[in-house]
Design a protein around this nucleic acid. Structure first.
Length: 574
RNA sequence: GAUUCAGUAGCUCAGUCGGUAGAGCACAUCCCUUUUAAGGAUGGGGUCCUGGGUUCGAAUCCCAGCUGGAUCACCA
């Protein structure tokens, strides 16, 4: 990077770097720094009566400075928060040489720099617990200017708020917006609470392939990649269900995985192309058992996080206290529309959808129409946690047929705040039925349903060896985190949400064109003719550029010689 | 994908009717013996997202593009 690209403040900081080195101070020292207290300790544990924390060594980032003659205050931020530091010139520099205070501290230390400090805790005249500094060490210099966010009585001043910058430069967001950190600490706590519960039951945490030759387990469009050595296409998994069930076949009675899944579909407030799902499979259980397990799990997560079960999401207060309401899909539709779809055939359903202004097309089978009905008429009304049960067989190819109605499956989804949170089955373990269902999916696919599942014959083979009765459940960790922390956008529960890559529209000057061999008389005209950068010029064919430029010369009656094609070719190859 | 809003200093934002680009914080210089959004004074800092167009003149009006947000559509 040339210095011309830098702002004034960045140049000043780089100059400080040189000055510090000239003084014999290394701005990026190798040695570690002993830390024996955190800002939290001073704020909460330090007690002036007890006289503790009198020999403290701390490290962190300088977040503000107030210099008043020979005395200064600064704020140090470590992982636990901020603590005020007091510097006195004659204590930092006991002898005649006041360079360390006047030059190093006052001139060459900036907001954002990491320093280490040693001193003792005390209370200032205004009553703030602070650290009286006896010596300080520069640990790492910051060359970019952090946004300075100030806060008084809970009101933020000059907050760093632009979503694009916050997501692209999450490191800055985390430094200056402490509440952002909290969301991610809670996210970790959610996962740890679940893991702890599963481990207590003796279930095994496993890892299964992300690169799959057949992307199975969910109806979704996968990302495609290619393996060079095998010379085959591979897909990024859309689900891990089929692998976890293979492990149940193999003899594990309870397996779970916190898995990154990938779906090549739209992005919005609740969808990111890569997202985290927890899937768990337990042998000898059915979906009734799984409902109880799920509600207990969520209640426990809420308690671990908040100490109670009520959570505010947008304008709604959601109570995760078990048990949750159970409602069959048909009853849900009946409740909202007054229409009982029990026993309807495809034509009757199509007419019902039409009457209710639910859009369906010819590729839709029975199951998908029922799903549309539910999706548009019921889903967003289900605010409090509700188990929707007994889905049509057509849309649940991995789920066991309902014990009392062969058109339905033993499946539930947990709806919260109008959104799907969990999905669970009494798993299909009849290999012949499974193969048939896969074949039905093929037919749907041929009919034009581009989400229909592929046939995984190895999975069928595994079932043929025998899988015990099993219930499985999947839960979206990102959405769960959104609910549990009250965030309304998935981007706020992912450290690095997917963004379009940053690109600067590069505009070159005439000298850049001269560098690749363009005559000076032409360089400026090239830019006017629309070739605003060398890269843009090189994207085009020499013949086309040649014609365009000579056309430009003629049109503008330029008093310069016409170009030859071989000249243009030289620029492109140069 | 559609609609819509936005993009101005390191950050947060003003910018009237089209007429020399502004504030606060941050930064620099000087002064200053414990301050709390926090000392005081002075000063520097701009590709007004990019490219075209209209105009004597564009941050401002028009067109196209880029990036992001919101809403909708799609999507488990």
């Amino acid at each position: 990077m040339s210095t011309t690209d830098l702002s004034e403040q960045e140049i000043i900081r780089r100059n400080s770097l040189t000055d510090l080195r000239d003084m014999g101070i290394e701005p990026y020292p190798q040695a570690g720094y002993e830390v024996n207290a955190t800002s939290h300790d001073i704020r909460e544990v330090f007690d002036p009566e007890k006289g503790n924390f009198q020999n403290v060594s701390m490290a962190g980032r300088v977040m503000s400075r107030r210099i008043m003659g020979k005395a200064s205050f600064a704020e140090l931020m470590d992982e636990k928060g901020r603590i005020q530091l007091y510097f006195n010139r004659d204590e930092i520099c006991p002898g005649e040489d006041k360079t360390l205070y006047n030059e190093v501290f006052k001139k060459h230390l900036d907001i954002g720099d990491f320093i280490g400090v040693k001193g003792y805790a005390f209370v200032t005249q205004t009553g703030e617990k602070s650290l009286h500094i006896k010596e300080f060490t520069l640990l790492s210099k910051s060359l970019r200017v952090l946004p300075v966010v100030k806060e008084k009585d809970g009101v933020l001043y000059d907050a760093f708020t632009d979503p694009e910058q916050r997501y692209r430069q999450r490191y800055v967001d985390l430094v200056v917006n402490p509440q952002v950190k909290e969301v991610f600490i809670k996210r970790a706590k959610i996962i740890n609470t679940m893991r702890q519960m599963f481990n207590e039951q003796g279930y095994l945490e496993v890892e299964t392939p992300i690169l799959q030759a057949i992307p199975g387990g969910a109806a979704a469009r996968p990302f495609t990649t290619h393996h060079n050595a095998l010379n085959i296409p591979l897909y990024l998994r859309v689900a891990n269900e089929l692998y976890l069930k293979r492990l149940i076949v193999g003899g594990f009675d309870g397996v779970y995985e916190f898995a990154k899944d990938f779906r090549n579909e739209g992005m919005d407030r609740t969808h990111n192309p890569e997202f985290t799902v927890m899937e768990i499979y337990v042998a000898y259980k059915d979906y009734f058992w799984m409902m109880e397990f799920t509600e207990q799990m969520l209640e426990r997560v809420a308690m671990a996080l908040h100490g109670h079960t009520k959570v505010k999401v947008g304008n709604n207060e959601i109570d995760f206290k078990a048990p949750y309401r159970r409602l069959t899909m048909t009853d849900a539709i009946k409740e909202r529309t007054g229409i009982d779809i029990t026993g309807m055939n495809e034509d009757q359903l199509r007419k019902t959808c039409k009457d209710l202004h639910v859009e369906v097309d010819a590729t839709f089978g029975k199951g998908k129409m029922i799903d549309e009905l539910f999706g548009s008429k019921c889903e967003h009304y289900l605010i409090q946690p509700t188990f929707i049960t007994d889905y049509p067989i057509e849309m649940s190819p991995l789920c066991k047929r309902h014990r009392s109605n062969p058109e339905l499956t033993e499946r539930f989804e947990l709806m919260v705040n109008g959104k799907e949170l969990c999905n669970a089955y009494t798993e299909l373990n009849d290999p012949i039925d499974q193969l048939g269902r896969f074949q039905d999916q093929m037919k749907l696919s041929e009919k034009g349903d581009d989400e229909a599942m592929f046939i995984d014959l190895d999975f069928v083979r595994a079932l043929e060896y025998g899988m015990p009765p099993t219930s499985g459940m999947g839960i979206g960790i990102d959405r769960l985190t959104m609910f549990m922390t009250g965030q309304e956008s998935i981007q706020d529960v992912l450290f690095f949400p997917q963004m379009r890559p940053e690109k600067k529209a590069k505009v070159d000057g005439p000298e850049d064109f001269v560098n690749i061999g363009v005559p000076e008389v032409w360089a400026e005209h090239l830019i006017k003719a629309g070739y605003t950068s060398v890269a843009k010029l090189k994207e085009e064919k020499a013949t086309q550029i040649h014609q365009n430029l000579n056309g430009f010369r003629k049109k503008n009656k330029l008093e310069i010689p016409a170009l030859q094609l071989n000249e243009v070719e030289k620029w492109l190859n140069g």
